[in-house]
Design a protein around this nucleic acid. Structure first.
Lengths: 327, 327
DNA sequence: TTGAAAGCGCTAACAC
DNA sequence: GTGTTAGCGCTTTCAA
């Protein structure tokens, strides 16, 4: 900046102002400064700027996995809004591990972000302490709780499971099974479903296949149906899956085994992936408006930046069970 | 750090050393420092550290879209290795737009990353100038060229199209069509295919449906087959698609129209998404080892950090046509 | 409208 | 092993 200033015949401070408060610089000086910038290819150092102004224009996000469309599409919507406001996003993957999350929160906080976005509402005690100590907006998304660190926007996973059970029971299903990935939220959807379906149907024996924490794959869905039939004596009914991926696997395995969907096996997925409407048969699934969620999370953060008093701490964006032909 | 020092009875510099060169600090001092850190919940300021040391431990990446598994899985592999070496990743989406890319390169460079990762080999002149001026490693991935900015790792899209044409012709197909998204690389795969297939079959009329730049969707695939049949009089043969997504759309539309795959319509996708082996029929598709690509890109960058002389400028990781039942 | 001075929180180079 | 000094490249006051 000093160099630019020399070239333009002004001081370094004026260059700084030209970049951040253009209206406070005379047109003549402005022109010479811009010319000097063009000639030199000057790129300001945002690190120094952030250090001096205590504003990094950086938002940090932690998600379990970026290859999972559920999270990446959320980040997409979120970052789109934040970028329009001048904020950049730094993302890391926790791989569904609380320990990794804790370590990453420390690393991220050391970059002095203006805000932080976290997945889910369960964080280690140390993590909570660091977050609180950082004194920046924290938004937890994809789940809700009455006691967020700062604020949260999402929906109740337990409720989505319960609702799925009620609808399935309403459609006449009397037998059920569940296939879930091992992560916190998938398990709560599963439990919500099992408890409610048991209440309604009077059958407490609802076979459950539980995978590892981590992304469910089509393969794991296929294996799950095989296990359900061969190891658990599952002989028909509705299967609640924790993702559309595993639901697609079940559809595939069912076809290979000559089972009719939904007559012999009915399938309900979760996520409403873009292919869900085009599987054979089309997948009945729980849809969460991820675009809206991403935007709501961005709005919550921006509201906090503006320092508005008494902003909403918890935003429930709900879910919707889309009935298609698979159940 | 000064506060920590005071609590531990040492100077601020010793605290700094305790964190970055623990071996240069006495065990006694170390212990008191760590205790003070624990008590205060101190999180060092990486911004200030980066400013002073001219090393940000930040890698910046630009991809067209993070919701596209092709790119996100690459980032996943890349960041995994980089994180193990102490580097964090900042990602932004260009949305397939060169203008956006240029603007983002400027923004990213202002954060003084230690290296930058770009998608593809086509960048604006201004972008190239900025990149060169930054004096940091630049790795371009997902494509190759003889004249990278710094280095590139990927494969030849034209060649993958040509190879697909040769194989399809070898399998006995004599008629073809293409369905491509509008981005640079999809178009080169398409052109490679069309040129080679025309040479081999002697039929120069290969109907081509070209979409917008941006992610192809299942829907666009369905629409493409409809257009092929209704507008282009396509009456059978093999269809080369620029993604598995659109290929799945074609499979879907074919089933709805009562067309047999591959007898009436044969389909070849691109990407080998995780569901490709499980569609009905399983999808013949071009596979690129994305994990390997991500790792190769990371290795290229790390090699440059070590300042090794004469590192490989271009790494071709190739591709593979997986024949399944759809063609 | 512009500039001078101070300082953001750290690391690098040197002394002790 | 530890401390002192001098910046890193900006923004923020304050004064002119």
């Amino acid at each position: 900046m000093a160099t630019i200033g020399k070239l333009a015949g002004v001081s370094q401070v004026t260059v700084s102002r030209a970049l951040s408060n253009p209206e406070k610089v005379s047109a003549a000086a402005m022109e010479r400064i811009q010319e000097a910038i063009r000639v030199t290819g000057f790129v300001p150092n945002a690190l120094a700027g952030a250090l001096a102004s205590r504003k990094s224009c950086l938002i940090t996000a932690l998600v379990p996995s970026i290859t999972n469309v559920v999270y990446s599409s959320l980040l997409h919507g979120f970052s789109e809004i934040m970028r329009a406001e001048g904020y950049q996003l730094m993302v890391s993957e926790t791989g569904f591990s609380p320990e990794t999350e804790e370590a990453l929160i420390f690393t991220h906080l050391s970059r002095r972000p203006d805000g932080i976005l976290l997945t889910g509402i369960h964080h280690s005690a140390t993590a909570r302490r660091m977050l609180l100590g950082a004194g920046i907006p924290v938004v937890e998304f994809w789940d809700i709780t009455e006691s967020p660190i700062d604020c949260c926007v999402g929906f109740s996973h337990t409720e989505s499971g319960r609702h799925t059970a009620e609808m399935a029971h309403g459609w006449g299903y009397r037998r059920a099974a569940t296939v879930a990935a091992g992560d916190q939220r998938a398990l709560r959807r599963r439990d919500g479903f099992r408890n409610r379906f048991a209440e309604l149907s009077g059958h407490a024996d609802i076979p459950a296949i539980t995978g590892e924490a981590g992304p469910a794959s089509l393969q794991s869905g296929r294996a799950a149906l095989a296990a359900l039939i061969e190891d658990h004596g599952f002989s028909g009914g509705v299967i609640q899956c924790s993702s559309d991926q595993s639901a697609l696997g079940i559809l595939t395995e069912a076809r290979i085994r000559g089972l009719r969907v939904p007559q012999d096996v009915a399938v309900i997925g979760f996520g409403d992936q873009d292919y869900a409407a085009f599987t054979d048969p089309p997948l009945t699934t729980v849809k969460v408006d991820r675009d809206r969620l991403g935007r709501a999370a961005a709005r919550a953060m921006l509201t906090r930046f503006r320092g508005e008093s008494d902003p909403d701490r918890v935003t429930d964006i709900g879910f919707e069970l889309l009935r298609r032909a698979s159940a």
